[in-house]
């Protein structure tokens, strides 16, 4: 039998195996298979890349969220610092006023004591001169 007969039957031979497709089809099929697997492979890769990307974006989102809250917090803190400072300022003003009053009191005490001292010195002088 010859190759012709076999091919009429739909059987083909190549070097080491029997095929039912003609060699050209077979070639295309094989090529298709390889292409397909390559495609799957690249799709997989793409998926991985996308997954990675999503992960990164999610991480980023978290970070952004954190930063946002931080920013909010610090903005609030900033605002409240203003109020706190104001309160603190008021307290200090109160304290200053208190100390100022105290100072005035002490000043008037000092003045009275100075006056007293002067009077006493005067007296001592008068007494010593008289003698």
């Amino acid at each position: 039998m010859s190759d012709y007969n076999l091919s009429r039957l739909g059987l083909y031979f190549d070097k080491d195996s029997i095929h039912i497709f003609d060699p050209s089809s077979n070639q295309t099929t094989t090529e298709l298979i390889t292409e397909c697997s390559e495609f799957i492979q690249s799709t997989k890769e793409f998926k991985d890349i996308v997954d990675d990307f999503i992960l990164i974006v999610a991480n980023l989102k978290e970070k952004v969220e954190k930063e946002k809250i931080k920013a909010l917090g610090s903005r609030n803190a900033l605002e409240s610092i203003g109020i706190q400072k104001e309160l603190h300022r008021q307290q200090l003003v109160v304290l200053i006023n208190e100390k100022r009053q105290e100072l005035e009191r002490l000043n008037s005490l000092e003045q009275s004591l100075i006056r007293d001292e002067a009077e006493q010195k005067d007296l001592i002088e008068r007494l010593t001169n008289q003698r």
């Binding site: 009053q101 008037s108 005490l109 009275s112």
Partner: peptide, 13 residues
Amino acid sequence: RLSDGSPVQYSIS
């Protein structure tokens, strides 16, 4: 004591 609370010393002879 003055009206603002200042203590004041005053000596008589």
